[in-house]
Write a protein that binds this DNA or RNA. Sequence first.
DNA 1: ACCTACACGTGATGC
DNA 2: TGCATCACGTGTAGG
Lengths: 228, 228
Amino acid sequence: MDFVEDDYSTYWETRMFEQKEELDSWGWDENLYGYYDSSSPDGSSSSATAKNIVSERNRRKKLNDRLFALRAVVPNISKMDKASIIKDAIGYIQELHDDERRIQAEIEELESGRQNTPDIFDLERMNTSFTGMKKKRSDQITPIEVLELRVSEVGERTSIVSITCSKKTDTMVKLCEVFESLQLKIITANITAFSGRLLKTVFVEADDTEKAQLKRKIETAIASLDIH
Amino acid sequence: MDFVEDDYSTYWETRMFEQKEELDSWGWDENLYGYYDSSSPDGSSSSATAKNIVSERNRRKKLNDRLFALRAVVPNISKMDKASIIKDAIGYIQELHDDERRIQAEIEELESGRQNTPDIFDLERMNTSFTGMKKKRSDQITPIEVLELRVSEVGERTSIVSITCSKKTDTMVKLCEVFESLQLKIITANITAFSGRLLKTVFVEADDTEKAQLKRKIETAIASLDIH
DNA sequence: ACCTACACGTGATGC
DNA sequence: TGCATCACGTGTAGG
């Protein structure tokens, strides 16, 4: 009564055969181990354990099937290891999260961009779009420690973002990644390091609604960096 | 002494603590079960099985941790069941796939909408959006294309590094990484993007010997980036 | 010989 | 009472 065996051909299939054979040909004898059933008046307990065994077997099979299916929907799996499958799946989901976030941002940009006349800032905006991808190597993170974040306006459609952090390893890179992920219309950016501090100044083109959200967006982007 | 599972109600992460305690406080005695080591002249076999036990314990723990982490990145988990976690993860990935496809279609539509005068901006956009995503999945790298690299001296201990590249995906981040990896004494740095070009200017503090090697170090660092 | 990764049977726990 | 899920120790096969 076991539903479906889809393919499986190239994986843990060895198990399948064993299992099938067992299920069919096992003269299941619980006295195999010389057990006398404990704590039960009749022999019902032995059949109980027998049921438990087959039940547990099904559970394991289901789990493996699921794991197998999970592997199927995740591309670029290198190791067939159970733990690795799950790990890759996690990484892939996070990857998709990032993609979705970026693409969504791009749509917003495109939609708002259609109303305005496309200007030179479109170039910059597009150039800075899909860049912050992936962080490959070390899982060791050095969170960005923000000392000051100031957003001020100069002119009608231009804002200056000024952020000061303590200079640690990779802070500069991460800072760049943050600003790229925000899909801002960056006119020019400047980073200065001195006495353990890192000061980044960014000229951004932003309309009123963008201005209003600018500071908050930066803050949350930096905060979300610290999570991973 | 039966370290009974208290609660469990909130889930199995409680187990982690128990397990840790076990590892620390177990006076691990393989004779607990009254085993005499079978089929071995000395007692080495028993220690082997003991190692196997602790190893297996670690494996289970790792698997559960991964599963726990997987659950963390998947929203709307109803059942805490192991199999259900994997199932939900699969469903969620497929969901994200659908979203991604739908959104990409949306972008295409938007872009075709502004197809009048296909100018450099549109070209830039195409390059950085779709191809950028695919490339990144397949781990394709976009090497830094250096157009000009100039190192000049200003003053006794200060040099100016001026580098111009074509602006592609991740160029800015990679450029930052390169300079980060060189461990230079950077006084100030400026990055400006303009018409598909990326211009980075760095003020570096360097003595004579460092000056002499500066340009070469930068070149090799960029070149070595393209290897991977 | 060691180490990894696995499936298995078993008892426990909670519904 | 059964039924589901789990952690555990064990034997084993492949690298």
